[in-house]
């Protein structure tokens, strides 16, 4: 598994996958995609990088502990639900904000997007935590 080709390719592959995962995340809601699938792609990227470069390297690159990232995700998703407290609507109502950018394009910001970003972080954090744990074990054997 640990060939030169793989080790050379892995950083680029991981970077590409994370970029793609963000694309899938933002594409969600009206098109197939969303936080869960995006998060899975990003977690696979982290796992691949972990196999190639070693778990310590990945943990250094991530800065935060994966579980802390998952915590951030839960926090963001719950926060998205609380936004509707300010408009007299029930928990988790979707709120939309359409911003006109200077070049005429429309930017849609919404609480479902915030929720999806939260899901993304939960999945990235939880899955990469499990993956790194298992990989770490393999290295020490």
């Amino acid at each position: 598994m640990n060939t030169v080709i793989f080790r050379t390719i892995a950083p680029f592959l991981a970077a590409l996958m994370i970029l793609f995962s963000v694309f899938v995340l933002l594409r969600g809601h009206n098109e197939p995609g969303g936080g869960f699938i995006g998060g899975l792609i990003a977690a696979s990227a982290i796992a691949i990088y972990g196999i190639a470069a070693g778990v310590n390297e990945v943990r250094k690159a991530l800065v935060f502990h994966p579980i802390a990232v998952a915590g951030l995700g839960v926090f963001l998703a719950t926060l998205a639900g609380f936004m509707s407290l300010f408009v007299d609507a029930p928990f988790l109502k979707g709120l939309w904000l359409f911003l006109e950018l200077s070049d005429g394009t429309e930017l849609a910001l919404s609480t479902p997007l915030l929720f999806d970003i939260g899901v993304y972080f939960v999945v990235v954090g939880a899955i990469s935590a499990i993956a790194l744990e298992l990989e770490e074990d393999e290295e020490t054997r």
Partner: peptide, 15 residues
């Protein structure tokens, strides 16, 4: 339901 949930999330972040 939401209070303990959000509390757990914050505590996980503050590990």
């Amino acid at each position: 339901v939401a209070l303990p949930m959000i509390g757990a999330a914050i505590l996980v972040m503050a590990r």
